[in-house]
Design a protein around this nucleic acid. Sequence first.
DNA 1: ATTTTACTAAACCGATTGGTAAAATTATAC
DNA 2: GTATAATTTTACCAATCGGTTTAGTAAAAT
Lengths: 220, 220
Amino acid sequence: MNSLSPRAKNKQEKEHRILKAALWVFCNQGYSGASMDAIAARAEVSKPTIYQYFGTKEQLFGAIMLSGRDRMLDAFSHPAPGEMVRDLYSFAWDYADTVMSPEFLSLARLIIAEAQRFPEIGRAYQASGPDRLLRGIMDYLITQRAAGHLVFDDAELAAQDLWALILSAPRNQALHIPDPLPNRADIARYLHNGLGVFLRAYSAHPSNDLASLATIIAAA
Amino acid sequence: MNSLSPRAKNKQEKEHRILKAALWVFCNQGYSGASMDAIAARAEVSKPTIYQYFGTKEQLFGAIMLSGRDRMLDAFSHPAPGEMVRDLYSFAWDYADTVMSPEFLSLARLIIAEAQRFPEIGRAYQASGPDRLLRGIMDYLITQRAAGHLVFDDAELAAQDLWALILSAPRNQALHIPDPLPNRADIARYLHNGLGVFLRAYSAHPSNDLASLATIIAAA
DNA sequence: ATTTTACTAAACCGATTGGTAAAATTATAC
DNA sequence: GTATAATTTTACCAATCGGTTTAGTAAAAT
């Protein structure tokens, strides 16, 4: 089953090496600043090999963005309904760990930087990243509303508020100041506060849920 | 008093033309993608003139970022305490109009793009832009707390929450998808919702303030 | 054993890059 | 009106860009 010919295997490995090297160079140098020579050198591959695999620089860039985005977001799971405050808490940390990782931030910076010159890439990222994620949060929030735990009219706005309250501040700062990254204590500060504000504004039983949140935070 | 020699006048005007052209080219092409020839052409000036005025490309970039940032943020005013909900509403729109303008978004994209290669520029922007603005909001919120209109422990977190609730969603989307920009109806949707959530979580008299907000929104 | 595939290093292409030396232009001083 | 000093431009540099070609080689398929 898993027996690929040595040829195909080598090819696969080389393609992966090129993609990885290209992602690194593009993220660190930007699209214009990245040279095909630099990518070839980092991938330990000759330049014509890259052109044979991916065509032009622009096509290579497109391939990078697709594979990079998928790799980073596929590992992410949406919360499954359980005890709400605990769900929200673990979701928030799961999301924070993904979004605040150096690789993810570098990719986001690259997408933002090239959004004007490659509009389709920005759109594709928004659709398959934030939008898909938002949909997952919305579904969860709607479930909890049906169970009588939350109160809101517009699920999309509620989901966006949750996102914004938890990660807007540290992410924006990290986008502007890559070094040093906010540490876990900083993120925890925003995260705990954000969840508290969300519950005060959206919970059907704020005092209960805030007490739960305090317990969870104290236990962590 | 205002009598500059023709030489000095010409010099001043040329410097301004170069800065303006450079800002445009850098914002549209990124640092690496921007060529000194393109800047010279747009400024209708020869390339050596630019080098005489600003030294190297890197120094020109630094000069741009300083002047561009100052020009855009100096026009912005912090809210002066009055009727709170009305203050927050007009502040929110004032801020939204500034932050969501195409020029401001382009500059933000540029800063984010080059944050790794020019860390001091990202830091300078954060300090003189978001941080200064945040300080203004904090002062206002603290005043309102002292007057018994708001309830919170951490003024910085409260200010960041206000920011995030109002503008995080549309700004993030605009950063990823420059075209089309969210229109005023979209921004109004986020803004109204964000203010509502903020008041539910932070107001000392939520029902009163939410009613005020509804009145203001209806009147607009 | 031989042919084919996949690859490499290197040189090369025209165009463009950031940057400069020297000539030409301009405004000022006499 | 001419000499002089400041300012700008023309013309150019070496280096690098994305991309291709060439010549040659190691290994897999036949």
